[in-house]
Nucleic acid binder design. Sequence first.
DNA 1: CATAACTTGCTTGCTGCCAGCAAGTAAGAG
DNA 2: CTCTTACTTGCTGGCAGCAAGCAAGTTATG
Lengths: 192, 192
Amino acid sequence: MSEQLMTEAAVSLLVERGIAGTTLAGIGERSGYSRGLVTHRFGSKAGLLAHVHDSIAAEWLRRVQGVVGRATGVAALQRVTDALYKFIVDEPKGLRAMYLLRYASIDPSAEYRANVAKLNKAHVRALTRWVEEGQAHGEIAAEVDPGLAAELFASVVDGLLYRWLVNPDIPVKELHGLMRQHIARALRAAQT
Amino acid sequence: MSEQLMTEAAVSLLVERGIAGTTLAGIGERSGYSRGLVTHRFGSKAGLLAHVHDSIAAEWLRRVQGVVGRATGVAALQRVTDALYKFIVDEPKGLRAMYLLRYASIDPSAEYRANVAKLNKAHVRALTRWVEEGQAHGEIAAEVDPGLAAELFASVVDGLLYRWLVNPDIPVKELHGLMRQHIARALRAAQT
DNA sequence: CATAACTTGCTTGCTGCCAGCAAGTAAGAG
DNA sequence: CTCTTACTTGCTGGCAGCAAGCAAGTTATG
């Protein structure tokens, strides 16, 4: 179907030329249609970008759920980082496009800003729950503030991906290992 | 001088309307000149944005140097986070504009991309040195990889700022405190 | 001291590109 | 033969970027 084709064309163009360099006409033509179809289907450039973002985000969510399974606490968070690392290795283009869009969404003129903000909040909520469950099992120190820890964890993930986007040569594998360690140590130790 | 005025107008427009919503004509007129002066002075929109970014980055650098002083090791990193927190409180608009631009620079079509990448590397180099000095004083565990620790630290800072841009209501103060703790714990403890 | 040549700081007119809209075509389904 | 679905084409307005020009100094020259 044309939507799928256009989404794929959009991803490759986004990775090659970025958001500003990607034109609706270019997407239409690369996917074998006319210059006008994209607008007709997705309403606007923002609409298309939101669709691209959301479809990759859905794929990411599926992967995380698959990897985390029924795990909680430290193991759950570590598996999220595992899924992240795997995503970087398996689908660098998709991840790149998604984060390109996500970072662009801080621009007040980006119409899918609210979308991203909501998704971020949902993500933190899931992380918070895993920390709380870890505390319930006595695995994570009671002094840890689950919401705060979740927010910090999410920040590290986002920041790491930003750095990877700017400079793909950073030692992603080693950083992944370091994160796994930090998660275990920081959560098991006690703090205010 | 007109450059200063236009830079200030650009910052306020960036914060209000974002990059796409900020027009060169708008900047010229808000600063009391004609619609064409900005292009004439800075050559292009990218040239202007690079100038705005660099002038705020210079201010940030000055602040960090002032706060860190001759400190090294854990204290140096903690003071960087202090400077960050202070910057968020004192100059949210400037910081916001700078990070808006910095995140936008991952877009391959952004011409000042190289600029930002270079700055990021310089930042990591400074952080690495502080960690190494901490190891020389025996304060930081020898097993810590200074470059890796620096990269992770930088990621946390960038990620936190991204999250703050998306949602200014996150508990910045508490996260700052949590970071200070993590820095001390993670670096003093031993690891592979 | 007067005027000509040049510089600096800024404005205005124009062009090309792109998003978005509106109208239209083509082809299959009922 | 009409309705729907999938797609195309023509057009408009807005913006970046360029080029030409103006106005108010400043320096050089006899």
